[in-house]
Design a protein around this nucleic acid. Structure first.
Length: 993
RNA sequence: GCCCCGAUGGCGGAAUUGGUAGACGCGCCAGACUCAAAAUCUGGUAUUCGCAAGGAUGUGCAGGUUCGAUUCCUGUUCGGGGCACCA
């Protein structure tokens, strides 16, 4: 009776499937546990062994929790909308729905192969109309909402309209346009269009304008990373900035909540830190500077002051000039006549520069004086106003007060343009570089002189408020999220334009006797995926779809993160066609207890789904405002690449041409027909190490038959080129020369300089990718060793959250372990050998220690050490010759989360009718996990010298007496008197002399 | 430049609270079985001195705290990740 994993795994997979063992109910008395994987985008390449790492970890956790008596939701689905499918469609003409379907089928097959306990009945796909119906619905909730800063939550827009009707927007500052101001009477008299425009400035999903990269030659809009060095990545065509109407999510309204509620999440510090950095909170204050300017333009417009944001209000007396962003609205008004031309030129220059250029040329200092002045609010000093690209229009107010003695960039700017520098830091400021540390006292600073920077900050903020020239202000780096894509393969917006006003299709508007529509707004079929006119998406080409009786449809589609921002909610109630999920279901399953995925989603997906969750919570649709309570990041599994070293040479011109040579000149065809020659890794290493080994290599190369036509003296030069070799031709480091020769025509006759009859390849750890020929497909591993071995080996590689290289060789060890485990239950000749003899104390100790450790390890996600413990346990049971049911039955249950197939097989062989997946995880008995004596390490002066056995409850003085009486201890004490006797119960003993 | 994380044998890694560093596995070496190979099994395997017993050194590097440091502190080097004119 051998361990036939193929048969075992096929049988139980079918059984689990037929019996619907993994079906999860929303009705249960058990406590719930929600274990989620980041769902994959089904790419054409399929899964490699790196992908399932997190899935295996979550599967183990889910299975363990189920055995521990929880009702566990552990679903899987597909993030099925996205650019690669569309790109593929453009290239091949196949509809993305078709290729996506195909890819999903392949993913499903690969996932099933590994034996996950997903409830596939709950599968979601973001591209299903029944799914994106609710993505659209949530979008409309955001569209119909605004953020009440006083209540600190989202509220329905209808409530805002009621406020406007009563008191205008006096008490509700407009997040989209701070200058927007109207009273109740004005509001009530506004025409529909004006009202809708005003409301748009408040909506959580709103329309605005944004610059996109427009490529005339490709006729399309490009993403930032598709533009390289100012030209399109594909084709190298010129690109330009184009202002387009786009949808946005007002995520900035949630900045404070997104940053503060991070504290309560069990995420890695690194991940939280990334989100904090992204949100970029900085605390400071706004300060207003009166303006003094003169010019002959715009006599009707009166601008009297400009507002700046600073995190260092304490440096107010060090201000030497003001700088506005070149795009700042005021620039056109305040610039004096004589500086107008220079300013316009400078603004033109800035406009021409791409963001990439501005970023890569940070050190270059540019700017232009406007001829206008700001008045220092306290000293009343006149401060010149400059414009410069180092001030960003999107941050703060797009204007700063420059303190060259305290800020590096201001300092560099002042030096470059020869502006005076006021020193407010005394000796701390060297004159050479700015003093930006926040320790020390201020000087030359009026009423702040002598105060520390901390004290000054408080004092100056009070003063600023008293003088009414500024208020404390918090700024965030976070910007509103662009939510439009000019693409086909995404969710259509549930938006209809009537007289160019966008309405949600759920609004009770009737136009031409027709309602605007209903959800879902289905993605129409298209013939071609080419972009529409004017940078619009492909949908703009379908005229009958866009132009309806009721109005014009929006032709943008939603970005990839739309569907993934809420999918964890849909799993809770996936077939509901009246709600995105019932309140009962979301209340029951609540937050995701464990979420596993890669770090690459740190700021995209994870930030957006947090915002959506908070919005849905605010609007009363769900009962929690954070989606993922605990987050675990899986590390990457890197590929282990193999290299061969190709001999490369060139023949000198003379040899080709010389006719006088006795052998005659080389015929070019001889060179051409010379087969590829590869040298083994150690020769390559030697050739790299020193040129003195060249002779040695030469001597060996001349042995190669096809090189005997040449003389080394004829070579202009020669070297070796490392080339990736497909790992399927390599066993460990040994190249399978026959297979390698067959792989490519020009290698058919290749010759090899081998070491002791073997060609050794070079090795390097790199990212796993097709182009590096180092991809390992889980299907191959499962076919060779079985899913259980594969699952345990992935876990055995190391901690789940760190990156580590894949090494197919190592899997043998885990496979051997499972075979060894099997032999505890069944013998090749004798068959089933489990007996009912009572277990010994030693065996019970081992079992209970194992049960305890496995449980503890799973709870702290240390799966690699669990696998070690199983190995230790099986090794010891084997040497004890233990085949006892009392030990082996609980062991099966313990193993079940890791290796479910073999566990199920053994469980049934042990006589059970029901699936092991529904059994109970064994409880460990503390009687067997606590020892009553300990083999203490005994150290002299901290150096461990020997071991002595004592009972755990032995009194200290007895131990001291025994230790000091020991001959070898005395020897190590070298006759010196004892200074101190250290005894840590259960740990160690140390004698200090 | 700033922020975060890491560094332990030939390799992946273990040491959970400051208490016997190197568990477990791979690889390698030797042996058993075999005509042979594979598979399997047994033993060895941090470095170094030594025939051995035994000794010395050792967790990137330099210090510190402590009876005792892979673990805590300071500095530093290297590697990985994130952000980057953010006022």
């Amino acid at each position: 009776m051998e361990y036939n994993f193929k048969e075992i795994e096929a049988n139980w997979k079918k059984y689990w499937n037929d019996q619907k063992v993994y079906k999860v109910s929303n009705e249960s008395d058990k406590p719930k546990c929600y274990v989620l994987d980041m769902f994959p985008y089904p790419s054409g390449a399929g899964l490699h062994v790196g992908h399932p790492l997190g899935y295996i970890a979550s599967d183990i956790y889910a299975r363990y929790k189920r055995l521990k008596g929880f009702n566990v939701l552990h679903p899987m689905g597909f993030d099925a909308f996205g650019l690669p499918a569309e790109q593929y469609a453009i290239e091949t003409g196949q509809h993305p729905a078709t290729t996506t379907e195909k890819n999903i089928a392949r993913y499903r097959e690969q996932l099933d192969n590994i034996g996950f306990c997903y409830d596939w009945d709950r599968q979601v796909r973001t591209s299903d109309a029944q799914y994106y119906k609710w993505t659209q619905w949530i979008f409309l909730q955001l569209f119909h909402s605004w953020y009440d800063q006083k209540a600190n939550k989202a509220r329905p827009l209808s409530e805002l309209e009621a406020i406007f009707g009563k008191e205008g927007n006096i008490n509700v500052p407009c997040p989209g346009d701070e200058t927007l101001c109207f009273d109740a009477a004005e509001w009530n008299n506004f025409p529909e269009k004006t009202k809708r425009d005003a409301l748009m400035q408040y909506r959580l999903a709103y329309q605005g304008y944004a610059q996109v990269w427009w490529c005339e030659a490709l006729g399309t809009v490009l993403a930032n990373d598709e533009v390289v060095n100012g030209v399109s990545e594909r084709g190298g065509h010129p690109v330009e900035r184009k202002n387009m109407r786009q949808w946005f999510l007002r995520i900035t309204e949630y900045a404070e909540r997104l940053i503060s509620s991070l504290d309560n999440l069990e995420w890695s510090e690194a991940m939280k830190e990334m989100q904090r950095n992204w949100i970029g909170k900085s605390v400071g204050s706004s300060i207003t500077f009166e303006l003094e300017y003169k010019n002959s333009r715009n006599p009707t417009v009166e601008i009297s002051s400009v507002m700046v944001f600073t995190t260092r209000p304490d440096t107010i007396f060090g201000v030497d000039f003001l700088v506005l962003a070149p795009e700042h609205d005021y620039v056109g008004f305040i610039t004096s006549d004589e500086h107008l031309e220079a300013v316009e030129n400078y603004r033109g220059y800035v406009k021409s520069r791409s963001e990439r250029e501005r970023m890569s040329e940070v050190k270059q200092i540019t700017g232009c004086f406007t001829g206008a002045y700001g008045i220092h609010p306290i000293t009343k000093k006149k401060l010149p106003i400059w414009i410069s690209e180092y001030v960003l229009i999107n941050y703060g107010f797009g204007a700063i007060m420059a303190v060259p003695s305290g800020d590096e960039r201001d300092h560099a700017f002042a030096k470059h343009f020869n502006l005076p520098i006021t020193n407010i830091f005394g000796e701390n400021y060297s004159g050479k570089e700015a003093y930006s540390d926040k320790i020390g006292t201020l000087e030359n600073s009026d009423f702040l002189t002598g105060l520390t920077i901390g004290e000054a900050n408080k004092a100056v903020i009070e003063k600023i408020e008293e003088l009414n020239i500024g208020v404390p202000k918090v700024n965030y780096r976070l910007r509103d999220a662009g939510f439009s894509r000019q693409r086909y393969w995404g969710e259509p917006f549930p938006i209809m334009y009537v007289d160019d006003i966008p309405y949600g299709v759920d609004e009770p508007i009737v136009h031409n006797d027709r309602h605007l529509g209903q959800l879902p707004v289905e993605l129409p079929m298209v013939e071609t995926y080419q972009p529409g006119p004017e940078g619009q998406g492909p949908l703009a080409n379908i005229e009958d779809w866009v132009n309806t009786e009721a109005g014009q449809r929006e032709t943008n589609t939603m970005p990839g993160y739309a569907g993934s921002s809420w999918y964890f909610l849909r799993y809770m109630d996936p077939h509901n066609d009246t709600e995105f999920a019932s309140r009962k279901a979301t209340d029951y399953w609540n937050q995701v207890d464990l979420y596993i995925g890669g770090t690459e989603h740190a700021v995209g997906h994870l930030l957006y789904s947090r915002m959506w969750t908070k919005a849905l919570y605010d609007l009363g649709h769900i009962g929690f405002d954070e989606p993922f309570k605990k987050l675990l990041n899986q590390g990457m599994i890197q590929g282990s690449s193999r290299f061969v070293y190709l001999f490369n040479f060139s023949i000198s011109e003379e040899r080709f041409c010389s006719k006088s040579d006795s052998d005659g000149p080389y015929d070019f065809s001889i060179v051409e027909s010379t087969p590829s020659i590869f040298i083994s890794h150690n020769f390559y290493k030697k050739s790299k190490e020193s040129s003195s080994s060249d002779d040695l290599i030469k001597r060996m190369l001349v042995e190669i038959p096809s090189l005997q036509k040449f003389s080394f003296d004829d070579f202009d030069g020669w070297d070796f080129i490392p080339k990736h070799v497909d790992i399927k031709f390599v066993d460990g480091l040994n190249l399978n020369i026959d297979e390698f020769r067959k792989s490519r025509r020009d290698y058919n006759n290749a010759e090899f300089l081998q070491e002791a009859g073997i060609y050794i390849c070079g090795a390097e750890v790199e990212k796993m990718s097709k182009s590096k020929y180092n991809v390992v497909n889980p299907d191959d591993i499962v076919a060779q060793y079985g899913a259980d071995t594969f699952r345990m080996y992935e876990m055995f590689l190391g901690p789940i959250d760190v990156s580590k290289p894949w090494d197919t060789k190592g899997i043998e060890g885990v496979h051997r372990f499972l075979k060894k485990l099997w032999r505890l239950y069944a013998d090749e000749q004798k068959g089933w050998i489990v007996n009912d003899e009572p277990a010994t104390d030693e065996e019970l100790r081992l079992l209970h220690k194992t049960i305890k450790k496995i449980g503890d390890d799973i709870e702290r996600f240390s799966f690699n050490t669990s696998v070690s413990q199983f190995m230790i346990c099986v090794n010891e049971l084997t040497s004890l010759g233990c085949h006892k049911r009392a030990i082996l039955e609980p062991l099966v249950l313990t193993l079940c989360p890791f290796a479910p197939h073999i566990a199920e097989e053994l469980w049934h062989k042990l006589g059970h009718e029901q699936s092991v997946t529904g059994a109970a995880f064994p409880e460990f008995d503390a009687r067997y996990t606590t020892e009553n004596s300990k083999n203490y390490p005994v150290a002299v002066n901290g150096k461990t010298r020997l071991e002595m056995e004592f009972a755990l409850d032995a009194p200290k003085d007895l131990i001291e007496k025994t230790v000091l009486a020991d001959e070898s201890v005395l020897k190590y004490m070298e006759g010196k008197p004892m200074k101190k006797f250290i005894y840590v119960p259960g740990k160690m003993i140390n004698v200090v002399v």
